[in-house]
Design a protein around this nucleic acid. Structure first.
Lengths: 197, 197
DNA sequence: AAGCATTGCGCAATTG
DNA sequence: TCAATTGCGCAATGCT
């Protein structure tokens, strides 16, 4: 399902080899046809679901791809199948990854994109995003807190309103009762009056 | 200043070669070449609050646990001057990070902890934790949703209760008014009766 | 000691 | 182009 393909290759900026892979990955990941496919639909599942890492599917023997390949992530990027890397596919040809991105790539290797992890540009972007993320999460946390508080306040308010309703209801009952008594009284009185006069 | 040094050694289980630079570089390192000097000109990182990463405050000496435990391989990468790492940062003393944890550590170096990222044990732990994390976040998401729904329901309920109160209040008013009229009527009648009799 | 649950964080992909 | 979001894995820590 989720064809995340996330690869969090994150670091490893160093070896040029890695970099290539990264370049690949980024672009491929994004392009990944499947990505558009299905997106977020979370089944109500509880258990079974979490078992699927979706990112680095494990080998049948339970080993993660990383372990098996030693560097699978990159390959997975290539193999567009994102999701379930065929277990038998071990024979994959990685030579392509070892080569620098073809000049035909959308963006020239050392350009804007495909930013080397060492570039100042990259770090600036990352740092800005990290700040934005912290800010966003802070905001989310506050929003959640407010919602919880609001729920509590509403609950209290609710209780107060119910008590008020109870009081008013009793009052209405009392008034009605009194009125009915009064009614009888008057009737009686009327009757008496009639008799007397 | 910012002693981040984040090391998100995270992924890149693959080639030990690939990982590390980032570690250092991460925040300040890369951005602020002069890190040691502290002039940290970090870009225009205003945002007062969010500008501070304050990530791994852990160890007293500022080292993160990962660092403390030392995954030598990665550290070695660092030493390799590898790549490009901070040009001026060279003066920083990372020797502490390069050394394996003291034998006096709670657990022997090659033991449970200090798990090599390549060990099956490590991957199993990670995978289990990833599953737990997904589950936990799913739970949190549901909890938040429920809270929001509850707030909405309470708000509606609240509105209904207020309307109810309004009706009851009017009813009370009406009854009282009627009663007062009745009261006058009776009094009047009484008076008339007295006169008549 | 061991294991799941939480939480903060950075990365990368997306969204607006 | 760039900030805001979002899903994810990692590691530290909380909680049994």
């Amino acid at each position: 399902m989720n064809t995340k393909l996330q690869m969090s290759i994150s670091d490893s900026p160093q070896s040029s080899i890695c970099m290539f892979a990264l370049h690949h990955q980024s672009s491929v990941g994004t392009l990944n046809p499947d990505s558009s496919g299905m997106s977020a639909q979370m089944p109500p599942m509880d258990e079974g679901l979490y078992g699927q890492p979706m990112a680095f599917p494990k080998a049948p023997d339970g080993r993660s791809m990383e372990q098996m390949m030693g560097f699978v992530p990159y390959s997975s990027c290539l193999t567009s199948s994102g999701t379930e890397r065929a277990p038998q596919q071990n024979q994959q040809d990685f030579s392509q990854f070892l080569l620098p991105p073809p000049a035909s790539s959308l963006r020239p290797v050392g350009q804007k994109r495909g930013l080397s992890k060492d570039s100042m540009e990259y770090r600036l972007r990352r740092e800005r995003n990290n700040i934005a993320v912290r800010k966003s999460r802070d905001k989310a946390r506050r929003r959640i807190q407010l919602t919880q508080q609001r729920a509590l306040q509403l609950q209290e308010e609710n209780h107060r309103l119910q008590l008020h309703i109870q009081r008013l209801s009793h009052e209405v009952d009392a008034l009605r009762h009194y009125l009915s008594q009064r009614h009888l009284q008057v009737k009686e009185q009327d009757a008496v009056g009639d008799d007397n006069c």
